[in-house]
Design a protein around this nucleic acid. Structure first.
Lengths: 199, 199
DNA sequence: AAAAATATTCAACAAGGTGTTCAATAAAAT
DNA sequence: ATTTTATTGAACACCTTGTTGAATATTTTT
């Protein structure tokens, strides 16, 4: 086995063991010895690859974070090139669908990280990224938040609505297909809480 | 000083020191020695009152949890006694206002617990409580979630909308009055994300 | 083929936190 | 006057941490 392959194999084993342990006992309770025992490597090896368990967590999260960011950015750039009014309406739909396709593939890992046993800050980090992209997009298109209620609350509602739905989706044992959920997300944009309750 | 007063004083000092330390270094990084040093008591004393830092956290959270639960329950019971259709409409308004009055008084503590440095599970615990009360209330009144989108998503949106707004409120350096926020919460019930964005 | 670089293992280490225990002190309650 | 309660401070064994160094095996370079 080549050095690069060996390297790859070890870090993959460590990462898999780590996710497995998050589900079992939760991130906080994990020790480095737990991870190396589960991964079948020595404790010394762990410290060759990572500073500590936080560094390992960060590296797993970073990969997901930057992949999602790229998917959204690529879609936004494509849209700018077309610049026809008709195509602009598809933007959220396309972003939802392509992001969800990726999230669906990685759902076991993402679900573990998002869960109570995982890293609560990761959800916030993703939320802030979406928030930033959304905000700069609004500036570009000249859209503004309504002032029926204070603007910071409007923003909070719009962003959190989307991400809470996705988080709920990930928690389900039998999640809908990404395509189905994209439909739900699109529909949710036009529904008020009051309309979701029938008396 | 009487024994009971002394007891009270010590636990209060410990609790205050604990909240202060959550803001400073975050719950995870806190050691028992940190708490006792800040509170000005010996480490031995801490273990007389609490099992560990998790027990201390739980006791602080429990007080807030049960107070909020009581406020909501009292309002729901009152409403059942009146039973007139007109009064039923005020129910959410009264619950919001009275809950927020309490939350506002305790906002420093609650904000610390809800923050990234605090205990992310506490927000979920409050959310689940509100969810349970809301669900049983809907059964009593015969209300149902709409099926425009799957019902579990409808529920998710309604509950999270309210609690995310409150969390955002707590994060503000200059939060609105409880009365003002009650108005925002009531208005949010009739607004869809789409209506919150002006193109 | 020989030398150098890389990946891993194992054992040892000090440092720091954990939760327990116990003797000592002081004040309040009985 | 005696007992109960609250606190202190020190000592204890245990665990996890991150570091280090010597040993081994395999791959890469020369």
């Amino acid at each position: 086995m080549k050095h690069e392959e060996q390297n790859q194999l070890t870090t993959t084993n460590i990462k898999n063991a780590f996710i497995q342990l998050i589900d079992q006992k939760g991130f906080n309770a994990i020790t480095v010895a737990d991870v190396t025992r589960t991964a079948g490597v020595s404790r010394g090896t762990f410290y060759v690859h990572y500073l500590d368990k936080f560094d390992l967590l960060l590296k797993i999260e970073d990969e997901i974070y930057f992949n999602i960011e790229k998917i959204i950015n690529d879609n936004l750039e494509e849209t700018l090139l077309l610049a026809a009014d008709k195509d602009q309406r598809d933007v959220p739909y396309r972003i939802f669908l392509q992001s969800l396709d990726y999230v669906y593939v990685q759902r076991e890992t993402i679900q573990s990280l998002f869960s109570e046993k995982g890293d609560p800050l990761f959800f916030n980090r993703i939320r802030d990224m979406v928030d930033d992209l959304f905000t700069s997009r609004m500036k570009e298109t000249g859209a503004k938040f309504s002032s029926v209620i204070p603007q910071d609350y409007s923003k909070e509602i719009v962003i959190n609505n989307l991400l809470n739905i996705i988080r709920h989706w990930l928690d389900k044992t039998k999640p809908e297909t990404p395509s189905k959920l994209t439909g739900i997300l699109m529909a949710s944009l036009f529904l008020s809480p009051n309309e979701l309750i029938e008396i």
